[in-house]
């Protein structure tokens, strides 16, 4: 038993040394010196002070940390910053253009698609990824493909309504509306 206990004790390895990681975050190239065990989420929140990206579980279970990497939505807690070296990362802070909100941000406000606001940046980044994927055309498809983003306040019906509106706005823009 004593032996078993001893074998269960984790081995002590020294903390890893920092390595350079270059990310283009919201259009700006940033080179950081990060211990390789640093997740993309913690790199954004703790090293770049971009706290708009939220930590809700740190296990890829809630979607609060969703960001866009080269335009695709990912859980930033499930990837190390070093694994995204050289890539383009877009966070909630990068969706606005000057003072102008992204159509999703406007729609979320209009439809009251959040309450506490903690899952909101992840929902919006995930919705931006969803629209880019072009896979959802019905409300049920939006519901299904947004189910990786938990909202404990239960704003789901309003989130669906907001995404539906923004999706239409983006489509109209793309078609070059009159």
């Amino acid at each position: 038993m004593a032996q078993l206990k001893a074998s269960l004790r984790p081995a002590t390895a020294p903390p890893p040394e920092p390595i350079p990681v270059t990310l283009t975050v919201n259009g700006v190239e940033r080179t950081l010196h990060l211990a390789p065990w640093t997740t993309l989420l913690d790199a954004l929140r703790l090293h770049l002070d971009l706290t708009g990206t939220k930590k809700g579980c740190d296990h890829g279970q809630c979607g609060a940390c969703t960001v866009l990497v080269d335009g695709r939505r990912i859980n930033s807690c499930l990837t190390l910053a070093a694994m995204q070296d050289g890539r383009k990362v877009t966070t909630i802070e990068g969706l606005t253009t000057g003072d102008a909100l992204h159509p999703l941000q406007e729609a979320f406000i209009e439809h009251d698609a959040f309450q506490c606001g903690y899952c909101t940046p992840g929902q919006i980044c995930s919705a931006a990824g969803l629209i880019a994927e072009g896979k959802a055309s019905t409300d049920d498809e939006i519901r299904e493909l947004m189910s990786g983003n938990l909202c404990r306040c239960g704003a789901y019906p309003n989130i669906v309504a907001a995404i539906r509106q923004a999706m239409a706005a983006v489509a109209t823009k793309a078609e070059g509306a009159p």
Partner: peptide, 12 residues
């Protein structure tokens, strides 16, 4: 609309 809405949708 929520008066704190803009802060919440921009990460502010």
């Amino acid at each position: 609309n929520r008066v704190d809405g803009r802060k919440k949708v921009t990460g502010d």
